[in-house]
């Protein structure tokens, strides 16, 4: 299948090194302590953060830092065909775990001993890159909840199809059989906290694809920073400062 045509245009009309349209909104779930919606093209996720609060299950209590929990679930209508999997299947468990570990790396858990933070992620539309979109949404929701973080974590994926490195794969490209590299970085410290790849790739190409994904992360972090700044300005304005 031809994923990039001769003019260098992808199936959805993007250039190889182009991100999809980003859209973020803070405060979408009013009952949560912090929440955000994040869209990357047709992928749309909602994140809600509850906490820090007392640990519900005492046996899970950690004396010197906060317990971070994460749940990822897909809506029945999120994919083209209706999802028939029950809640909490293997794939969601794996993604929950990955997101939990990534977010734990940036939350300053040592400041909140004996407490618990819950991150709930709901996929409304899945069109590739739900993992990345969830991490970006979770970062915004954590910031909205006022949870101390050492940096902003952002994530983006990149792939390699038709001998071209492609940024931010959509569902068709993701299922095209090529490798899919998902990278999560701490934006300011410039450190990689998440790296996953699911196919074989020569070393020098891998370097190129990973660099492309990191560049994508940087663009997203710039956007997230703008959204957070705008949100803070709004809050300031409402408080009359």
């Amino acid at each position: 299948m031809e994923f990039v045509n001769l003019q260098g245009i992808r199936l959805d009309g993007r250039r190889p090194k182009e991100l999809r349209q980003l859209c973020a909104e803070i405060g979408v779930v009013s009952k949560a302590d912090g929440s955000a919606a994040f869209e990357m093209g047709n992928t749309r996720v909602i994140a809600a953060v509850f906490g820090p609060r007392a640990v519900q299950n005492r046996s899970q209590k950690i004396a010197n830092r906060a317990l971070v929990r994460c749940e990822y679930s897909m809506a029945k209508f999120s994919t083209g065909d209706r999802v028939r999997r029950p809640k909490g299947d293997r794939r969601s468990m794996e993604i929950s775990l990955v997101i939990r570990q990534t977010m734990e790396a940036c939350i300053m858990t040592q400041l909140m001993p004996n407490s618990q933070i819950d991150i709930c992620l709901q996929v409304l539309q899945a069109d590739g890159g739900t993992r990345s979109a969830c991490i970006n949404a979770a970062t915004l929701a954590l910031a909205d909840a006022g949870i101390p973080m050492c940096d902003i974590v952002v994530s983006c994926s990149a792939g390699y199809l038709n001998t071209t490195p492609l940024l931010d794969l959509n569902y068709i490209e993701d299922s095209g059989g090529g490798p899919d590299v998902t990278v999560g970085i701490l934006a300011k410290m410039n450190k990689v906290t998440l790296l996953q790849m699911d196919n074989k790739l020569p070393f020098d190409t891998f370097e190129k694809v990973m660099q492309l994904a990191i560049d994508g992360c940087e663009a997203i972090s710039k956007y997230i920073r703008e959204v957070l700044l705008e949100n803070t300005k709004q809050l300031e304005y409402r408080r009359g400062l």
């Binding site: 779930v29 009952k31 949560a32 929440s35 909602i46 994140a47 809600a48 509850f50 906490g51 519900q56 929990r69 749940e71 679930s73 809506a75 029945k76 809640k87 909490g88 819950d118 709930c120 992620l121 709901q122």
Partner: peptide
Amino acid sequence: YVDCSSTVGPSFQGKKGE
């Protein structure tokens, strides 16, 4: 079919919302 997202509250995580 109705599903209860975990974003409603942490008490609905996993199978608790069923």
